[in-house]
């Protein structure tokens, strides 16, 4: 099983990836409304990959614990 801090780090990593991806796609310097939209977008976008990664990690760790 993963430690609680590992889940947090994984989510932060997912969020950081999508935040950067969103940020480099913005035309010009983002102002405050755009910045809020980017953060919300990154939060929503990172949620699904985060769950998928957890699922994969759990399957791998379950299979490896059998041996």
């Amino acid at each position: 099983m993963m430690k609680k801090s590992s889940y947090e780090i994984l989510f932060i990593a997912c969020f950081a990836f999508f935040f950067i991806l969103n940020f480099i796609n913005v035309i010009g310097q983002p102002d405050l409304p755009l910045f809020v939209a980017i953060i919300i977008g990154a939060l929503i976008e990172s949620f699904t990959p985060y769950l998928v990664l957890i699922l994969i990690i759990r399957i791998i760790s379950r299979d490896s614990s059998k041996f």
Partner: peptide, 16 residues
């Protein structure tokens, strides 16, 4: 535009 959409729910970050 960029953002995403799912079943009528959407977030539009920039729209030109």
């Amino acid at each position: 535009h960029y953002g995403f959409e799912y079943k009528g729910n959407s977030l539009t970050v920039q729209n030109y």
